[in-house]
Amino acid sequence: MRTVWRTARLAERHAQTRSGRSLVFTVPGWPGHLPGQHLDVRLTADDGYQAVRSYSLAAPADGDRVELGVQAVPGGEVSPYLADELPVGAAVEMRGPLGNWFVWSGAGDEPVLLVAGGSGVVPLASMVRARRATGSPSAFHLLYSVRGPDELWYREDLLHEDPLLDVRIVYTRRSPQEADREPGRVLPADLRAPTARLEPASPAYVCGPTGFVESVADLLVGLGRDPATVRTERFG
């Protein structure tokens, strides 16, 4: 496996939240990827200076079409440029796919637990979309923690009526009126119902900021999940 840099042209940009963007690129020669994988994006300034960052793929493989989720980090060197400055039709370079661990293979039929914190939902959305596209019989249980209702990514995919996708949203700062729980961090009670529907070998995928992932992974082990079935990916 030789991973090369490929030219990636920005085809579409959509706002997901105030600072979260979906970017769709056309990448000739893209070799495909598995749900949950990420890639490297390389930017080059006029003087030759280059900066590289990793971003999660937000959708399953689809020819040379590659969708990323980019959260603009205030003061960040790369993410604000990608989120708001790179013109549609302009190119960056990409290398990947990367990461062969935080992936859903789609091989089994056991239920799957997904736990997302903020923009950590991006690689999990790729898994949700892949399950729907392949017609896998696995039931997906998604617990999605966001600060407030305006921070939800992928509303159409995640709030779409689907008997095999059960989504529970935990608001940490501001709840909508219809919420059945006070705002606050994910607690054991939030995980009890989705974990009760898992099988012993069911995988759990946890992605989000470090503190969130640490806390949720510990809670899952405390609820009796085998640590070997809990896969984590963190940022920040």
């Binding site: 080059t44 200076y49 280059q50 900066a51 190119a91």
Partner: peptide, 23 residues
Amino acid sequence: TSFSPGFRGRARPLADRLPPGQY
């Protein structure tokens, strides 16, 4: 360059301590 028009990046870091492709 033909890539990432308008990208400037940060101040160029200490080249002797930063391996290629790192920030």
